[in-house]
């Protein structure tokens, strides 16, 4: 698979982004800074040894960085429209725990890596994509795209990310759809809860 060497984002990119983007250059810069800071913090957390301290730090990182309710809703895809309030509440809690337990372990692959922001683009006023390169200690590179939003002018929050083009929300949505078709949203929630309980051991 082809990989490219990209340069650190240049001020000119912000200017060109401003020319065609509906968002202001200021908000794009603010969004890009948010991603850079939060991703750096995540890489710091992943250098901690596995255990309660790292899990707590990761849970705090999720709370201050990720739009987990929105992410949970998008992972339901078309089934969001037919979920009852009670189903949605139980599922959202399970989803939140699942993200903490599963992604803390999946992301530990990036322990000791460093990050460089490559460029960013505002898809609209409240929706920005930031491309980064994560460098392994041995020089290997991974492209990670972060998608962030700030609905209603609130703080920026991560709405999705893609490692080498594999989107987290799309992967979860496709995975969940099969379970919901078979066992309904309640069945999915039960499966997530048992998965979390098993993984937390």
């Amino acid at each position: 698979m082809g990989r490219h060497v990209w340069q650190r984002i240049a001020p000119a990119l912000f200017v060109s982004a401003f020319l065609w983007s509906p968002a202001s250059a200021g908000s794009l810069e603010e969004a890009t800074d948010f991603v850079a800071q939060r991703a750096e913090r995540l890489l710091d957390i992943m250098t901690l040894p596995p255990g309660p301290e790292r899990r707590d730090a990761f849970a705090r990182w999720i709370a201050s960085t990720v739009d987990h309710d929105g992410m949970a809703n998008r992972a339901l895809g078309r089934y969001l429209d037919v979920a009852t309030n009670a189903e949605l509440r139980a599922y959202t809690v399970a989803f939140h725990n699942y993200i903490i337990i599963t992604y803390e372990r999946r992301l530990e692959t990036f322990s000791g890596y460093s990050l460089k922001v490559e460029r960013s683009r505002a898809l609209d006023d409240n929706d920005v994509v930031v491309r980064t390169t994560i460098w392994a200690p041995d020089g290997g590179r991974t492209t990670v795209d972060f998608r962030i939003g700030n609905d209603n002018g609130g703080p920026w929050r991560l709405t999705d990310f893609a490692i080498e083009g594999l989107s987290m929300v799309k992967t979860l949505r496709d995975e969940f759809a099969g379970v919901i078709r078979r066992d309904g949203i309640e069945g999915l929630t039960a499966l997530i809860e048992s998965n979390v309980a098993e993984s937390a051991l």
Binding site: M1, G2, R3, R119, S120, R121, L123, V129, R131, T143, D145, R147, D160, A162, E164, G165, L166, S167, K170, T171, D174, E175, A177, G178, V179
Partner: peptide
């Protein structure tokens, strides 16, 4: 099974696009 199915399709789409993955339209 479903994870493998979606990851296969996404990775294949990336190969067809000659390794240029752009899921969010950057």
């Amino acid at each position: 099974y479903a994870t493998t199915r979606t990851l296969y399709r996404q990775a294949r789409a990336r190969e067809i696009a000659n390794g240029v993955a752009d899921p969010f339209g950057l």
